[in-house]
Measured scan of single mutants.
Amino acid sequence: MNLTVNGKPSTVDGAESLNVTELLSALKVAQAEYVTVELNGEVLEREAFDATTVKDGDAVEFLY
């Protein structure tokens, strides 16, 4: 899956889609429990991480 992460191209191997929690784990995001996630310009509530799917071509920003 090809994404733009914090403005840079990134690839997650072996996945066509992941939820936000899985993406944080796959990318080994440090202190993931404290990060705010913006997906395609929309800031996500932490409670929505498990239910929100990240797909090929999406833009993700991790805000600390």
Rank of each mutant, 00 (worst) to 15 (best):
V37R: 00
E47D: 12
L3W: 02
A59G: 06
K28L: 07
F49S: 03
T4E: 04
F49Q: 04
Y34G: 08
G14Y: 12
V20T: 01
V43D: 03
L23Q: 00
D56F: 05
D58T: 03
N19S: 15
F49W: 15
A48K: 12
E47G: 12
E38V: 15
V5S: 03
G7A: 03
P9G: 06
T11K: 14
K55Q: 08
A32V: 12
T4I: 13
L24P: 00
L63P: 05
A26H: 12
L3F: 07
A51G: 11
D13H: 15
L23D: 01
V29P: 05
L63C: 15
E22D: 10
D58Y: 03
N40F: 02
V5K: 02
S10D: 06
E22K: 08
S25C: 13
E16H: 13
G57Y: 03
E16Y: 13
S17I: 10
E61I: 12
E45Q: 12
Q31L: 14
G57V: 01
L18H: 03
A15Q: 08
D56G: 07
G14W: 14
R46M: 06
Y34M: 10
L24F: 04
K28Y: 06
E42L: 13
E42M: 14
D50Q: 08
V5P: 02
F49K: 01
L44T: 05
T21R: 09
G41V: 02
L23K: 00
D50C: 07
L63I: 14
P9E: 07
L39Q: 00
R46E: 04
A32I: 13
E33R: 09
T11E: 06
V29Q: 04
D13E: 14
V5I: 13
E38K: 15
A15H: 13
E16G: 11
L3M: 05
R46F: 07
N6G: 06
T4N: 06
G14H: 09
V12M: 06
L3K: 01
V54P: 01
N6F: 01
N2Q: 12
E33G: 09
N6S: 05
G7M: 04
N19E: 01
N6H: 03
A32T: 11
T52C: 06
T53N: 09
T11G: 06
E45A: 14
K55G: 05
A59F: 14
D13L: 14
A59Y: 13
N40M: 02
L44Q: 02
F49Y: 12
V54K: 01
T36W: 09
A26M: 12
D56E: 09
V37E: 00
T52K: 06
A26V: 14
L27I: 05
A59S: 14
E33F: 08
A32M: 11
V43L: 11
D56I: 05
A15N: 08
V35Y: 07
T21E: 05
A15T: 10
N19F: 07
K8F: 10
P9N: 08
A15M: 11
V35I: 10
V35P: 04
R46G: 04
L23N: 00
E42D: 07
S17D: 06
V43I: 12
Q31F: 15
D13S: 14
A48H: 11
D56L: 04
N40Y: 02
A30Y: 12
T4Q: 07
K28I: 06
T53L: 14
N19P: 04
E38Q: 15
K28C: 14
A26L: 14
G57C: 05
G14V: 09
T11A: 08
M1F: 11
P9Y: 07
Y34D: 08
L39H: 04
V35H: 05
E22C: 08
E22G: 08
E38A: 15
T52Q: 06
L44H: 02
E45M: 12
A51M: 13
V5G: 02
F62L: 13
V20W: 03
E61H: 10
A51S: 14
E42I: 15
E42G: 05
E16W: 14
A26F: 14
E61R: 15
L3E: 01
L3D: 02
F62I: 15
K55V: 09
A26T: 08
G57W: 03
A48P: 00
E38N: 13
E22A: 09
S10M: 15
Q31R: 12
D58G: 01
Q31C: 15
E45V: 09
E42Y: 08
F49D: 02
A26P: 00
S25K: 15
T21Y: 08
Y34H: 12
L39W: 03
G14D: 07
P9C: 12
N2R: 14
V20Y: 03
V29I: 13
A51D: 11
E22P: 00
D56N: 11
G41P: 01
Y34V: 12
V20D: 00
S25Q: 14
E16A: 12
N2L: 10
E42T: 13
M1Q: 03
G14N: 09
T53H: 11
L3H: 03
Y34T: 10
E38G: 07
E38C: 15
K28D: 08
S10Y: 15
V29H: 04
T52N: 04
L24R: 00
A26R: 14
T36A: 07
V5D: 02
L24M: 09
E47Y: 09
A59M: 11
S25D: 11
T36L: 10
L23M: 05
G57M: 05
D56Q: 07
N19T: 15
N2P: 02
E45F: 09
D13T: 14
L27C: 08
Y64W: 11
L39V: 06
A51K: 14
A30P: 14
E42P: 01
T52V: 10
M1A: 03
S25W: 10
M1V: 08
V54T: 01
A32N: 10
V35M: 09
L27Q: 02
E22N: 08
A51T: 15
D58Q: 01
S25V: 14
P9A: 10
Q31E: 11
A30F: 12
G7F: 04
S17V: 11
Q31K: 11
T52F: 05
L24I: 09
S17H: 10
D56P: 07
G41H: 05
N19Y: 06
V29W: 06
S25E: 12
S17T: 12
N6T: 02
V12T: 04
D13N: 13
Y34N: 09
N6D: 06
D50R: 05
S10I: 15
V37Q: 00
G7D: 03
D58M: 04
E16N: 13
V54D: 01
T11N: 08
E16K: 14
S10H: 15
K55M: 07
S25A: 14
P9D: 06
T52R: 06
N19D: 03
V43T: 09
S17E: 09
D13I: 14
A59R: 14
N6C: 13
K28V: 06
Y64P: 13
S25G: 08
V29A: 04
T21D: 05
A26G: 04
P9K: 11
